[in-house]
Amino acid sequence: MNVSPTGIAVNLWTLIREQAMARHWELSDAFFAEIDGFAWVQGWAISRYRTRHTYRDPRFDRVVVCCTCGGDGRGEGGRACRTCKGDGLLNFFEPPAARKSA
């Protein structure tokens, strides 16, 4: 009877599966090493699940929909919204554009 490193009795198929998964992770790390390194330098979040790697820029957490135009980008009279300058989105950590006094 074989015993795993944790002391649990395992059969041959379990050992083969564990070895295959270990090799799989090694290959996945090798294939994605350059892309993961680039994402890490950029400060992106990296999610790994089996053969899929997902990258996400956390700066997108700062983007919110403009509350004045509702994300449409148009204000009164069909002109560009004054708060978001027609973009429909605002950066949460930047103050809105200053209003010009008329």
Rank of each mutant, 00 (worst) to 15 (best):
A39I: 00
G86Q: 00
G70K: 10
T51D: 15
M1L: 08
G7A: 04
W25E: 15
D29W: 04
T14H: 08
F38C: 15
T6L: 10
P58Q: 02
V65H: 07
A30E: 12
A102T: 08
G78E: 06
D72S: 13
A102Y: 06
L90C: 05
A22H: 11
G43K: 03
S4R: 11
T54C: 04
P5C: 15
A98H: 02
A98W: 08
R74P: 10
R82M: 09
P5E: 13
K100M: 05
R82A: 06
F31V: 14
E94W: 02
D36N: 13
G43H: 04
N2G: 08
A80K: 06
E76P: 11
F60D: 09
L89M: 03
T83L: 01
E76M: 08
L27G: 06
L90Y: 01
W13F: 13
E76R: 14
T14P: 06
D29L: 13
I35D: 04
P58S: 06
A97I: 10
S47R: 15
K85T: 05
R79F: 02
D57W: 04
S101G: 03
Y49G: 15
P95Y: 04
T51W: 05
F31T: 14
R62V: 09
G77F: 02
A39N: 05
N2M: 09
A45Q: 15
I35Q: 05
A20P: 00
P5F: 13
Y49N: 15
F92A: 14
W44T: 00
R74S: 05
T51P: 10
G88N: 01
G77Q: 08
K100W: 00
E94Q: 13
A22V: 06
R50N: 10
R52H: 11
T14E: 06
R74K: 11
G88M: 04
V63C: 03
A22Y: 07
G73A: 09
R50K: 14
H53F: 10
L89R: 14
H24W: 06
D61Q: 10
K100E: 04
G43A: 01
V41D: 13
D57F: 05
